[in-house]
Design a protein around this nucleic acid. Structure first.
Lengths: 294, 294
DNA sequence: ACATATCAATAGAAATCTTCTATTGATTAT
DNA sequence: ATAATCAATAGAAGATTTCTATTGATATGT
């Protein structure tokens, strides 16, 4: 029964019988049969299909919601018993938006100190993907902005307020300043994250409000790529202050706080709205509360 | 897997492998094997046993808690799909303390009006048993006092405040009074519920505070039995006012409000603290809110 | 202290179910 | 029109579950 619900969950993720079956480690006919059994046991069609997967029926949607919950609880149960036996073990799966990648270690380092047996998987994803992964039980927690776009049905723990700074060469136009305004930044050609990221949308908004139009000279979804350009001193960028601080900068590059309008956004941990949490997640939340600066 | 968790739940109820097996509709070796598999899958002993059932290990306790939740969710899921198909169907199981039995119809009658396909099972139980039944998923809701003894981990909906009255013959010592005090009641020989009920404990307390000692001339766990004695006019009793009002009284018997000290206790619905509720339970809660007088 | 009863575990056979491979039928893409 | 993709089906092999019958251990009663 639980295994059948796993089939359903996989199908929701993959939207394809064959791939869902593979994800579950069974063959396609096995998955088909499993779903058929579910449907028979409920007496309702759960999946609309005509020679290929189409979508879930309304009943299928409801069962899917319950399946997520039931499977989440089942995993939490196993984890908890495991923790009672051997302390915290297993793999903690986190996804973070690129702008926060450099601060994740402030969570994982003390976490590992306390629970050395825990292993980590950390993915760089945009915020929309993070919420999808959370919904599908594919990650235990996410790190993203809390106050910008509506949160899904998740709980959250604030971590810190983000400020932005202009990264530019000391000998560039604004390079000798102690602080700059968004109005000034609006005229600098920048290297920025691609437009499917929240950080980019935030920066775009601020630039636009200051009268600019933000046509970046270079855009990428990789922070390392942006960083490697900026450190040459030949490109400018706007980055979260924490990111700039953590990465460290070459001598030729200066990180200049952008001060007006004062624009801060809250970065925080997002976790599934389940009570009780899994032990691994609970420990992460405890760490987040310790590390939180707000 | 879910079936195995059902085994565990049955064992917690019955504390006996054979009876638990019977409750699950399997033989004892099947249940034993099922539990052994659970233990192997967790890698932990769940049940302490030496030639007979002893108790659950700490891990077993935790698994038991999760099992209740997971199985509760599984049933809720089935119920919800069923409700999507055919509207509300199935059996709503309620347990109520004897003092409230006469008011249950104020819930069930409008409920049935709205959802004619739903069937009811209503048990008369004391409050301790009600909470056990709730914990074991054997009932969907209970009706009991909310403010007297500590509630388990349940949610609740207040229904009304209970007042008490003295039932006695018109020609008995206090029979001509419009109201009486607990101090006066303390001297009347009464027919009361047995001491394992909350109602009795409440009355005992009030009588004792008024200086009496409550040695009932007759006690029973059956309201019908008490009622049949009282209606002869040859016995006196203290009953919740609602009960007296609902049952109706023979001409010779009067129901006299007991006014001082003003003693009211809240009667309410108690339901498992699960979100979301099962559809059957949700409908009952809605009805309770409608009927509630407080 | 001995006999009896109760209880859960075990052994082994029978039955059920699950899963697989191979194929089909239907639809979509080229 | 042909090929490719996808999910359902058929049928055999394999795994699991469940049963009956029994054992071994502990408790109960005489």
């Amino acid at each position: 029964m639980i295994e059948k619900l796993e089939f359903l969950l996989a199908l929701a993720r993959e939207r394809h019988f064959g791939r869902a079956a593979e994800a579950c480690g069974v063959t396609q006919p096995t998955l088909s049969a499993g779903l058929k059994q579910l449907e028979e046991s409920f007496g309702v069609l759960l999946v609309n299909r005509g020679s290929r997967f189409q979508d879930f029926t309304p009943e299928g949607q409801r069962v899917l919601d319950w399946a997520r919950r039931i499977i989440g609880d089942t995993r939490a149960m196993r984890q908890e018993v495991q923790a009672l036996k051997h302390g915290l073990t297993g793999r903690l799966r986190i996804a973070a938006i690129p702008a926060t990648l450099a601060m994740i270690e402030t969570l994982t380092t003390p976490y590992r100190e306390r629970h050395p047996a825990v292993q980590f998987t950390i993915l760089s994803r945009n915020s929309k993907e993070i919420f999808q992964l959370l919904d599908n039980l594919e990650i235990d927690a996410g790190v993203t902005y809390l106050d910008n776009e509506p949160l899904g049905h998740v709980a959250h723990v604030p971590l810190y307020r983000e400020h932005y700074c202009l990264l530019t060469a000391a000998d560039a136009p604004l390079g000798n300043r102690d602080k700059v305004t968004w109005a000034e930044v609006a005229h600098v050609p920048l290297c920025l994250l691609t437009a499917n990221t929240q950080t980019r949308r935030i920066i775009d908004d601020l630039v636009r409000q200051a009268g600019g139009d933000s046509q970046p000279t270079l855009e990428s979804d990789s922070m390392v790529l942006l960083y490697s350009h900026v450190r040459t001193g030949r490109w400018a960028s706007v980055m979260p202050a924490r990111m700039a601080a953590t990465l460290g900068l070459a001598d030729v590059v200066r990180a200049i706080p952008i001060v007006a309008p004062e624009a801060t956004h809250t970065v925080g941990l997002v976790i599934p709205a389940r009570q009780p949490m899994t032990p691994l997640t609970a420990a992460l939340v405890a760490e987040a509360r310790r590390v939180a600066q707000i």
